[in-house]
């Protein structure tokens, strides 16, 4: 891989991760199933009053999306760490942060995109109005990459640890708070029929910020974890 140009290395890495994911279909399906399952547990727990469900629906869907993302995060680097591929990345002549972007993009395509596709169904289940479902889709489209990007830093820090999973949630979930607030509120506001451009630009700002800083932090964290 070292002899290839950077764009080629990027696409190769992306293709490899996608192929691996298609072979292990459970990796795609498990978080998705979890997402649907958690969301459908809430009406059973709090009652099926349509007004109540509509009021708490956006929050439920977004919290479930956070947890589903958390469930799948370890997959970004875990298997590459175990078979030693990760060390090869660090030794390659390409900037590690760019390779990290390829890994994160693959992770988003595998886990974030399916959530996006299935979310309208959950919106209908929780009785959200049509406008709110469209905004839900937009917030998930802008927000799930942020989940993968921030999560990658956490995974990079805990990848070498035996009990990394529990610590990973402690590291990552507090950092998800702003996204949760802005995104769930955007859907809420849309359900009330009010404009949400401010919310969406805040989420976009989060996306730009995490896209520019998280790959660098992830690369640095990988170097430390593998030293």
């Amino acid at each position: 891989m070292t002899s290839d140009s950077l764009p080629r290395a990027f696409t190769l890495l992306l293709k490899r991760d996608l192929t691996l994911a298609v072979r292990h279909r459970a990796e795609i399906l498990n978080p998705l199933l979890f997402f649907v399952l958690v969301t459908s547990l809430f009406p059973l727990g709090i009652g099926a009053d349509p007004k109540l469900l509509q009021a708490v629906g956006p929050g439920i869907i977004w919290v479930a999306a956070l947890l589903a993302a958390l469930l799948s995060l370890e997959g970004i680097f875990r298997s590459d760490f175990e078979d030693g591929t990760l060390e090869q990345f660090l030794l390659s002549s390409h900037p590690v942060s760019v390779l990290v972007i390829a890994k994160v993009l693959a992770h988003w395509l595998i886990t974030g995109l399916p959530l996006l596709v299935i979310s309208p169904l959950l919106g209908v289940l929780l009785g959200l109005p049509g406008d709110a479902i469209i905004i839900l889709l937009i917030t998930l489209a802008l927000g799930t990459p942020v989940l993968s990007l921030i999560g990658a830093v956490g995974v990079a820090l805990t990848v070498g640890l035996r009990k990394g999973g529990m610590i990973l949630s402690l590291l990552v979930l507090p950092l998800y708070v702003p996204l949760l607030i802005f995104a769930a509120n955007a859907v809420d506001t849309a359900a009330a029929g009010l404009p949400v451009t401010a919310h969406l630009s805040l989420i976009s700002a989060l996306l730009v910020l995490s896209l520019s800083l998280s790959p660098l932090a992830t690369a640095a964290a990988l170097r430390i974890s593998l030293s």
């Binding site: 830093v153 820090l157 590291l171 950092l175 932090a217 640095a220 964290a221 430390i224 030293s227």
Partner: peptide, 10 residues
């Protein structure tokens, strides 16, 4: 060093 990265992200 790992903690330093985490503190910076935080």
């Amino acid at each position: 060093r790992a903690v330093a990265i985490l503190a910076l992200v935080g």
